[in-house]
Design a binder for these strands. Structure first.
Lengths: 110, 110
DNA sequence: GAGCGTGGTTACCGATTGGATACCGTGGTG
DNA sequence: CACCACGGTATCCAATCGGTAACCACGCTC
């Protein structure tokens, strides 16, 4: 999903302290996701970093972690109101990046 | 200038690799600035980091460095077109941050 | 009871970041 | 000559980042 288009080193912005946070947020756009569901689109992230990102986003109030009292273990992550409100400026930024992608690459090369 | 309102550790986003880049860009909003002029509003940044931010922003094509062939040494930094275009999403983000400042603080505390 | 999936944690370790501090060459100025 | 401002560099060091790999408890299934 983000592998090619979002090496994140090229994107000139970051959400949260770590570089994955923005992508995690975008993965939660369409509703709650489980830990293992997040690992699919974010294949390149190690479990350690994913946990770290999730904890950090939770601490900052962007996402909510819910652990279900079911026989099989089930944990989901979803955006809070605050997290959802962040999507708008985030999208502004992403569309800026798409729009200026070529310029970014040109500037990097030279 | 940014001392109290922008500890940057609180701001949930970053421009460029380093945490100062966003503030540097905003300092250049109103026109070219000299190295020493930038150090005033960005009092808390070390010369090393300021240089690093400036070099990085220059490499990425957001700012332009101009060295004048004058007897006294004079160097200015100004936004390029690309850099200027980044101001808009940047401002979107900043106003988001202002709007949700209390929520951010609340989330951090608990 | 061996193995699997879920949702992680832990230990280790090299690479990177970032702060403080001191220093430097050039060109004025007193 | 001494000293200052400008625009940085150089060095040192501690903290953090981030990847790999192993491990773990729990419940389920074969």
């Amino acid at each position: 999903m983000f592998e090619e288009i979002c090496p994140s080193s090229l994107l000139p912005f970051r959400i949260g302290g770590d570089k994955w946070a923005g992508m995690v947020l975008r993965c939660l756009e369409d509703g709650p996701r489980r830990y293992s569901e997040l690992r699919v689109p974010l294949a390149r992230i190690s479990p350690k970093m994913l946990t770290q990102s999730l904890r950090s986003l939770e601490r900052d109030g962007f996402i909510r972690r819910t652990e279900y009292a079911e026989p099989v273990r089930r944990v989901t992550y979803e955006l809070t109101g605050l997290g959802r409100s962040l999507l708008e400026p985030l999208r502004t930024f992403c569309s800026w990046a798409e729009e200026h992608w070529d310029e970014l690459l040109d500037a990097r090369e030279s």
